[in-house]
Nucleic acid binder design. Sequence first.
DNA 1: AAAAAATTATGATTTATGTCAAGTATTAAA
DNA 2: TTTAATACTTGACATAAATCATAATTTTTT
Lengths: 231, 231
Amino acid sequence: MIEPTTPDSCQHCLQKCDAFQALSLSEMEILHEAKYDTAYRTGEVIAKQGAPISHLVSLNEGLVKVVLETPGEQDIIISIEKPVFILTGPGLFVDNRYHFSVIAISECRTCYLEIQQLHKLIDTNPDFAKRFYKNMGERDILLYNRIRSLNQKNMAGRISEALLNLHKIIFETNPFDFILTRQELGEFTGMTKESVSRILKEFREEGLIEIDDRKVEILDFDKLRDISRKG
Amino acid sequence: MIEPTTPDSCQHCLQKCDAFQALSLSEMEILHEAKYDTAYRTGEVIAKQGAPISHLVSLNEGLVKVVLETPGEQDIIISIEKPVFILTGPGLFVDNRYHFSVIAISECRTCYLEIQQLHKLIDTNPDFAKRFYKNMGERDILLYNRIRSLNQKNMAGRISEALLNLHKIIFETNPFDFILTRQELGEFTGMTKESVSRILKEFREEGLIEIDDRKVEILDFDKLRDISRKG
DNA sequence: AAAAAATTATGATTTATGTCAAGTATTAAA
DNA sequence: TTTAATACTTGACATAAATCATAATTTTTT
């Protein structure tokens, strides 16, 4: 069990997140007094689809998957997120429920802000509100891209895209940790785990990537981008 | 060419739309003075993916398709919308661009509100803002369902779902106008027009629906719901 | 370290859906 | 009304991806 941290101030975490940069110091302090934090282990559910949104949860450490739980066996992974990630969903102003689950895929630390505090900030600080909605809009735009690629790209294109995105957005190193299981990468790219295996094998054989000891290295970015684009 | 209408007041149209019910009469009047309206014929583009959002467009009459334009030949129809529909998109607070196109699929009337007016309302009327975002959230939730069904349901399930939704949300009558071409229904359900033909034929043969003279009638709701659910 | 459990790899086969092609019906234009 | 253009139907065939089955790894537990 990892210990929750209690940082001196919210400033450190929240200033990394665009919306909260609109807050005055006094607003920050009010948040800080109200907040408390928690630690999660891999696999634990941080937010559960269908459950009420009681707090605004902020991911301060670790990686999570945003999962659409479906009636069938195979879920859909909408995105992988790293800190600082604010777990807002479309339900915030609708039915106050989560419309997806957020699950730790490494050890995570989060902190919680009272949801009333959030609504208060939105009501009283238009700049904050705009930035907050901007953030929601950005996630939305990514969703549209998601629909497009799941719908129209072939398997190789989807895997290429996933690898490039994990590299570019999450890890920013090469090689990078291959945290996802084949099953998860399948849920992220809309295919079975067997198909994931096969595509990765092809990519290895063609010298596009290298997989070793839970790490992937992208060897041929251009080719991979090309495959991703053509889909 | 159909003539644009100039109603006495915006009240009529906008009061059908949740967000605008939060406006005071004086706020309404300001909007009314600033607005102007237009008529569109079938097939005309009301909002173009990639273009800047200069105004908040409100659909007051007619039906539109919300289309994700893609590099390939087959686009993706996100939804079909009827009045009163406010054409907001995720770009509003991000890059001020449309991330999808909105195209008339019947004769349409729209009116335009200056985008600054909208921002002003959001800044000064928190109740309006909340309702406005609620609306965005609702559309977002539908998007998640869309991803799920495009990804995991088979063709019959997707067509069933589409027919049931057109009936329930858009037309509310049975039989109802079959405004979509097979191509469009294919873009709405993520399949080719040929596959649409085949599934519709099956449904006809099994007595689930009846198609006549540009109209569909749903004969067996339960069975169709069942097919949609099982996917 | 040994055993058990989970994850991954890979081949054989099946299935859903797309593609191509040709013909018919419907709508729009001359 | 006749012609041209578009939309729809249907069949034969091709193919991408899923499923099933089994073995080989790797990870976790004892």
